[in-house]
Write a protein that binds this DNA or RNA. Structure first.
Lengths: 126, 126
DNA sequence: ACGCTGTCTTGACGTTCTTCTAATCAGAGA
DNA sequence: TCTCTGATTAGAAGAACGTCAAGACAGCGT
């Protein structure tokens, strides 16, 4: 990384209201793209996309790693690595309770990504 | 490619109605994840995210490569390569008219990605 | 027909990603 | 304290990615 002008972090975005207009309205600033692209990248793997959906759709809002791992034909460390990627992207949080670790989705960031992609009717008609 | 059970393609999804419920409601099937993950991956680069936003927010619904390239400090071939990635992900289409090539967003796929990430109030409150 | 401009493809190089095995850490129970 | 189980970290191999320079292709103008 050579030139990193603005120190815009994920918290600056997920804390406040919607970061910016949908990409159909205005061009995204470079700093915003730098902050949000990693979240999209984290969802850009089939395994992580399924993990994310299992976490986000968990009945109690959380799900144990021990329930996630057997759902795939991948080794435990590999699943753990993918979960770390989702964690570092800010899409999920982890909490250890006793022996087990539970994962929970972060709706704020998800909603931001969704609103960024929202396409209004005007774009379709026009 | 070893085991490719269902021949689910991008067209199967973008042609019809919403592919599936938001990931907050149900776990997405493996085939759907395989089809949609590349679209998220394509958006997972700051340059491509900005390109996508410039294309999607273009006043006439389309924008010339000659307007995209000078907006970045990257070589022409590199921009062209990123545009190809967006094209292969199904997020944009390209059309040559005379000397110039114009890019246009594909709202269908964008709307699918957005609805997949949609978080209802129930998830937040519950 | 020729050259000019705009865009894409090719080939290469260094970096990052995905996956594994092996080793380590955290907590529960005897 | 020792051991057992669940989860993460460390290290390594192979594939994929981002970038550029050089070359190829497409269309316009002379």
């Amino acid at each position: 990384m050579s030139k990193q002008a603005a120190a815009l972090t994920l918290n600056d975005l997920s804390a406040g209201q919607p970061c910016c207009a949908p990409i159909t309205e205005d061009r995204i600033p470079a700093e915003t793209a730098t902050v949000l692209a990693p979240a999209f990248k984290a969802l850009g793997d089939p395994v992580r996309l399924q993990l994310m959906s299992m976490i986000a759709s968990a009945p109690d809002g959380e799900i144990c790693v021990c329930d996630l791992t057997p759902a795939f034909t991948l080794s435990g460390p590999t699943i753990s690595h993918h979960l770390k990627t989702l964690r570092e992207a800010g899409l999920v949080t982890a909490e250890r309770r006793g022996t087990w670790v539970y994962y929970r989705a972060q709706p704020g960031l998800m909603r931001q990504l969704a609103s960024l992609l929202t396409v209004e009717a005007s774009v379709l008609v026009g």
